[in-house]
Amino acid sequence: MKRDLMTLELDLGDERPAPIPAPVALLIERGALFVVNHSGGKDSQAMYLLLRQHVPADQLAIVHADLGAVEWAGAYEHILATTAGEPIHVCRARRTLLEMIEERGMFPSPQQRQCTSDLKRGPIERTIREITRARKEAGHPAWGLIVNCMGMRAEESANRARLATFKLHAGNSKAGREWYDWLPIHAWSEADVFAAIAAAGQKPHVIYALGMRRFSCVFCIYATDEDLKTAATLATTRPELVNDPGIYRKYAGLERSTGQVMMMPKNGVRRSLEQITGVAA
Rank of each mutant, 00 (worst) to 15 (best):
M150A: 09
G74L: 13
R121G: 01
L5N: 01
E156C: 08
V269L: 03
A196G: 12
H186Y: 07
R214S: 11
F166E: 02
G201A: 08
D192R: 07
Y180S: 00
L50T: 10
L273I: 05
R94P: 02
V193L: 15
K250P: 06
F215N: 14
E240C: 14
G246D: 11
G176M: 05
A32D: 00
T237Q: 14
I247E: 03
A158S: 15
V269Q: 04
S272N: 08
E155F: 00
A280E: 13
Q53C: 04
A65W: 00
L10G: 09
S157Y: 02
G139R: 09
G68K: 08
M263W: 04
A191V: 12
D192K: 04
P184G: 08
V55C: 12
Q275Y: 05
R271P: 15
T258M: 07
D227L: 13
E255K: 14
P123C: 13
D227W: 12
E137L: 08
F166M: 05
R3T: 06
G144E: 01
H186D: 11
D66S: 03
D244K: 06
A175C: 06
A61T: 01
M212H: 05
R271D: 08
S157P: 01
T224L: 12
L26W: 07
R3A: 06
A84Y: 13
A191E: 14
M1F: 15
G40V: 05
M263V: 09
A191Q: 14
D225K: 10
E125S: 04
R249E: 13
A200W: 01
I128P: 00
R162V: 04
A75H: 02
R213T: 14
I247Y: 04
D118K: 09
I88F: 03
Q111N: 12
L27C: 01
I197A: 11
L163M: 07
T277G: 12
T83I: 07
L5R: 05
L254K: 13
P239W: 00
G40T: 09
A231H: 08
T224P: 04
V242T: 07
E226G: 14
R16N: 08
G171H: 02
W179Q: 00
A81D: 15
G144T: 02
S157V: 06
T82H: 10
N148G: 05
T7Y: 13
T127Y: 02
P141C: 07
T237N: 10
S157A: 10
M47H: 03
A138M: 07
A223V: 05
A25E: 00
P110R: 09
